[in-house]
Amino acid sequence: MRKLLKWVFILVGLLLGSLLGVPIAHAAKVNPAVAGAGYTVQMVRPRGQVNSTSGYFNLKVQPGEQQRLVVILHNLQAQPQKLTLGINQAYTNPDGVIDYDRYNVKPDPTLKVQLKQIFKEPQRTITLPANGTERVGLTYEAPADPFTGTALGAVYVSQTKPGKKYGKGKITLQNLYAYAISIEMRESLKAIRPVMAMHHVGVGQVDRQNMVMANLQNSRPTVMERLNTQAAITKQGSTTVLIHQTKKGMGMAPNSNFNYRIPWGTTTLKPGNYTLHLSAQATKGTWHFTKNFTVTQQQLNHLANLAKQPKPNYWLYILLAVVIALLLALVGYLIYKNHKNKQQLAQK
């Protein structure tokens, strides 16, 4: 019975992977100890730690200060495992989330302190022996010139190769796990207010959806927290709202920018002049922007060509969903029948 259930669950997992349209599924920023990545990452709290209970490197430094941060890597597998360790700068991803998963991030023009430039070995590959443990030292030298605000990044550890494959042919699942321990470096604990600016506004396409994109920037060395926005698009000179969007719970890394996306939805913008009205509220600031932009026929033709690229076979997805539902129903029936049989045997 248990063996049958095991194979049913494996089959459900394989079908679910193909249903999501991802030939190889990569999981990032998951606690490897919890998710079964086969390794763990642990920080050693250094001197200068602002809060001794913080689960990340929360550092108050002096100009020119040198210190060695330490993380402990432990291989839980019975075979050697290669990991990449990097000092990654915090950036704001297109969803308005502070992220650490890229080593080579184009710095915002306002960024003064790049963490990977003050660490002596900002990126390396480490081979852990089977069931082995290694202490990794990360030495930094704080900038000689005083700096204000927060330099934010992370010790980012990731597997160099995905784990074991499951499935055959085009339907395969592999897990690639990564873990980030944030680094927040400051010389002063004095609070700084963020400042938002809105730059270029134009049109683009993401996952076959046409978007109006507005580049938003946090130009100050501080985290922008609890960011909410309200966006409205009108014809230039008109008050009639064509597209409206509200987003809540976003954030921005210090000295970073991202392209804020506003889907067209069921609206089709024609060639012409438009205006974006955007309001934003964060923990320490409120901003209002109005910016005109133009949509050309050439841009619309380009978006149309992008949308003509081969589309996924949605009928296959529907069929797989039905099969998964039937398999889950089968699992429920088998569990029920097994429980019923045990009750009958107990009564005898």
Rank of each mutant, 00 (worst) to 15 (best):
W7L: 14
L11R: 06
V12N: 03
L14M: 08
L19T: 12
V22D: 08
A28V: 13
K29E: 15
A33N: 06
V34E: 15
A35T: 11
A35C: 11
A37C: 09
Y39F: 11
Y39G: 05
T40C: 01
M43R: 08
M43Q: 06
M43C: 07
M43I: 11
R45H: 13
P46C: 03
G48K: 13
N51Y: 06
T53H: 02
S54F: 12
G55Q: 07
G55L: 04
N58E: 09
L59W: 00
L59M: 07
Q62C: 07
P63E: 09
Q77K: 15
A78R: 13
A78H: 13
Q81S: 12
L83Q: 01
N88I: 09
Q89T: 07
N93C: 09
G96T: 12
Y100R: 04
N104Q: 12
N104K: 14
N104D: 06
N104Y: 12
L111P: 12
L111Y: 07
K112W: 08
E121Y: 03
P122L: 03
Q123H: 05
I126Y: 00
L128K: 00
L128N: 00
R135E: 15
V136E: 01
Y140T: 08
Y140Q: 07
P143K: 00
P143W: 01
A144G: 15
P146A: 11
G149K: 00
T150R: 11
A151F: 02
L152G: 00
G153T: 10
V155P: 04
Q159C: 08
Q159N: 06
T160G: 14
T160Y: 03
G163D: 05
Y166P: 07
Y166M: 12
Y166N: 03
G167C: 04
I171G: 10
L173H: 06
M185F: 02
L189F: 11
L189Q: 05
M196E: 03
H199K: 14
H200I: 11
V203R: 06
V203M: 08
Q209Y: 10
L216F: 08
S219C: 07
P221T: 05
T222N: 10
V223E: 01
N228A: 13
A232M: 15
T234P: 10
T240S: 06
L242I: 07
I243T: 04
I243G: 02
H244A: 06
K247Y: 04
K247E: 13
K248N: 14
K248R: 13
P254A: 09
P254L: 08
F258A: 04
P263T: 10
W264Y: 10
G265I: 04
T267A: 09
L269N: 05
L269A: 02
K270F: 03
N273S: 14
L278T: 08
K284M: 01
G285R: 02
H288I: 13
F289D: 02
F289H: 01
T290M: 10
T294P: 14
Q298D: 10
Q299Y: 04
L300W: 02
N301A: 13
L306N: 01
Q309W: 04
N313Y: 15
W315V: 12
W315Y: 07
L316A: 15
L319H: 00
L320C: 12
V323L: 14
V323E: 05
V323N: 05
A325V: 06
A325Q: 00
L326G: 15
L330S: 07
V331T: 09
L334W: 14
L334S: 00
Y336T: 13
Y336C: 10
K340S: 14
N341D: 09
K342S: 03
Q344M: 10
L345M: 08
Q347H: 11
